[in-house]
């Protein structure tokens, strides 16, 4: 009687957990199923290496090199903004700020991480881009530079919050040992605390990377959208995510253009999957 209920309960929760695996498979299968047929027409080499992205041309071309480059440039730019700011803020909050400020900073960082990306996109498009255009005397403020700043600011809370956890988990005894040996505050931070929190900090950067390369709205609104190899920071690009978002509406289900966007999704999935894997390995090593 009771053992029947016990088994049923276990089976139900087991099925629910199984569902997560099914979902992941479903996602992988569906993007591959829709994307792979592209390669019957376009070779993998042309797809990944081709410079021309003319999906709606009479004689369409599906080279995503410029889109890949767009994603990579904007993401690296964002990390260059976010790593110093995020890590610096984390160190400040956990090592320098007074306890009251620290207690306030933690929830505020968490709150900021909850601001929708489309709001950042709006801010970049309507406020920062015109400013940048004016300051640098450009044709358009929608470029790598602006989108890197906005995207960078957006992932600062992610990097700051995770690094702060890692840094404040460094045992007090280590800090005391460094001070007792005559180390200054800076030396203690730079030579003892940060190295001890290394894996957590690297993890936070990888997480930030994953968020940045997968982010759609900010780049869709701020990166400009031209599929070209950028020659300077102030040129506009078309990252992979914004290509998918901008063009999916124009496609017909099952046509080559539609398939090519799914093929881009496969590339995107591969990149985030790899960065996830590396994150896991980094954390595995720590244990």
């Amino acid at each position: 009687m009771n053992s029947y209920k016990e088994k049923l309960f276990k089976v139900v929760t087991y099925t629910a957990s199984m569902f997560t695996i099914v979902l992941l498979f479903g996602i992988i299968v569906s993007i591959f199923r829709e994307g792979i047929p592209l390669f019957r027409v376009v070779s993998l080499k042309d797809f990944l290496g081709g410079l021309a992205w003319y999906p709606t041309h009479e004689n369409p071309q599906f080279g995503i090199r410029t889109l890949l480059a767009g994603s990579v440039y904007v993401t690296l730019g964002a990390l260059m903004v976010a790593i110093p700011l995020g890590l610096g803020s984390a160190i400040f909050v956990s090592e320098i700020a007074r306890p009251r400020l620290r207690e306030l900073a933690k929830p505020v960082i968490e709150l900021l991480a909850g601001i929708p990306s489309v709001v950042y996109g709006l801010f970049g498009m309507a406020f920062l881009a015109p400013l940048i255009r004016e300051w640098f005397n450009l044709d358009t403020g929608l470029n790598i530079f602006t989108s890197s700043i906005i995207l960078g600011i957006m992932i600062v809370p992610i990097i700051a919050s995770m690094s702060e956890d890692a840094i404040s988990n460094v045992p007090k005894a280590l800090r005391e040992a460094s001070y007792a040996l005559g180390g200054t505050k800076w030396e203690t931070i730079a030579k003892v605390v940060v190295p001890s929190a290394k894996s957590g900090i690297i993890g936070s950067v990888l997480l930030g990377f994953g968020r940045a390369i997968g982010e759609t709205m900010v780049v869709l609104m701020v990166a400009g959208g031209s599929a070209q190899m950028p020659k300077s920071l102030f040129q506009s690009v078309r990252p992979m995510t914004s290509t998918i978002a901008a063009e999916m509406g124009e496609t017909v289900v099952g046509d080559l253009h539609y398939r090519s966007l799914f093929a881009i999704a496969i590339v995107l999935f591969g990149i985030t999957f790899l960065s996830n894997l590396i994150t896991e390995l980094v954390f595995l090593k720590r244990r």
């Binding site: 996602i27 569906s30 993007i31 829709e34 994953g210 390369i213 997968g214 982010e215 759609t216 995510t241 998918i244 978002a245 999916m248 966007l261 799914f262 999704a265 995107l268 999935f269 985030t272 999957f273 960065s275 996830n276």
Partner: peptide, 9 residues
């Protein structure tokens, strides 16, 4: 870790 646009697709 999957980008939200892929969920959309």
């Amino acid at each position: 870790g999957i980008p939200s646009i892929i969920y959309g697709l």
